[in-house]
Simulated assay, not measured.
Amino acid sequence: MTKRDTGRVLKTTALSLQLVEHILELEGASLADLAEASGLAKSTVHSHLNTLAEYGYVVSEDNRYHLGAKFCHLGDYVRTRKEYRRIAEEAIAHLSQESALEADFAVEEGGRIVSLYGDLDFTNFPQFLVDGSPFHIHTTASGKAIVAEYPRERVQEIVDRWGLPATTERSISTEEKLFDELQQVREQGYAESDGEAIEGLWAVGKAVKSPRGEVYGSLNLSGPAYAIDDETKAAQVELLTKAVETFEREVTEMYGAPSGGGERI
């Protein structure tokens, strides 16, 4: 499990959330399992679990604790509250029909990248949900596509907060290389990740903006790197470009706003 700096957070809340992640990682756990995983006394773990259960975040079945169905409702709320949800889901459905690669729509939140819509196979595993989500901005095509639209100062703030950890041997490791690549993203209009977030996974991402020029997120296509050659890459970029144009046009029509967007934020 990823170690977190708890110096600026409430320790009791952090412990409860860590227990939630232990339950997820273990795919259900006994009180003894959670005490061992957390290093806490059983009585302390039991108190946290009782509180989580009281609010519907944890359920007990046959002396094992599991995450509650309330998380389903929370996830649905996060997805459905976005005003562009329908348009994003239609864009993902279209890309999934037209491409053999997996499609998703990701957003930047708190300086990291979260896949909000789509059905990426690797995101269904508990270990990914604990350690792999959200991603760092420098490892993904979506992250690079999104922050390439940000002013340098904002990107620097994100890097100062999270650093540039090497998820794989191919991950960007220096600020100079990151800013050089972001400049390249701006020039070519899309971002790539080749084994930088997950070994053997290639991805391409393109930012999606609101009529005011604000960055909503990024539409992305991803698949095994061994299956990507120049011709395939060009075809995926073309598909993605058309999908982004349709997305932005439909959002503009939804708001009845003039097309053309605004300046990069």
Rank of each mutant, 00 (worst) to 15 (best):
V45T: 10
L116F: 02
E214T: 05
E27D: 11
H46P: 01
G217A: 11
K206I: 03
V20M: 11
G143T: 03
V208Y: 03
L31E: 13
E21N: 10
Q236I: 07
D104S: 09
E89A: 07
L26N: 02
E27M: 00
R161E: 15
K144P: 08
T51E: 12
I158A: 11
V9F: 12
A41K: 14
A41Y: 02
D119F: 04
R154G: 03
F135G: 06
I113L: 03
L34P: 06
D180L: 12
L10P: 01
G163H: 12
G28F: 07
E250W: 01
A32I: 02
A37W: 06
V159E: 04
H138D: 08
R81Y: 14
E83N: 02
R85H: 15
Y255D: 12
V244Y: 01
D230R: 11
D194R: 10
Y77K: 00
L129R: 14
N124A: 14
G256H: 05
A243K: 02
S133V: 06
L239Y: 08
Y57Q: 07
Y216C: 05
K82D: 14
S99V: 09
G75H: 10
R249E: 15
A191P: 09
G39V: 00
F128S: 05
E27A: 03
R170A: 15
A41W: 01
G217T: 02
D230C: 02
G110A: 10
H94T: 15
E199L: 04
V204N: 06
L201K: 01
K42E: 15
I137E: 04
A41S: 11
F179S: 03
V45C: 06
V114Q: 07
S60V: 10
E153I: 05
G189N: 10
R186N: 00
L19R: 01
K82H: 15
V107K: 03
E98G: 03
L52P: 02
R212M: 15
R4Y: 14
V215C: 13
A191W: 06
A93H: 14
E231A: 14
H46M: 06
S171F: 12
V251F: 02
S133T: 05
A148E: 06
E192L: 14
R86T: 15
E238P: 07
H48C: 13
L31S: 02
A203E: 14
S193G: 09
P258H: 08
E250I: 00
E169K: 05
A93K: 10
T246D: 11
S30F: 00
V237I: 14
D104K: 00
A145G: 03
G68N: 03
V59P: 10
S16M: 15
I198R: 06
L74E: 11
T174G: 06
S218N: 13
R249K: 07
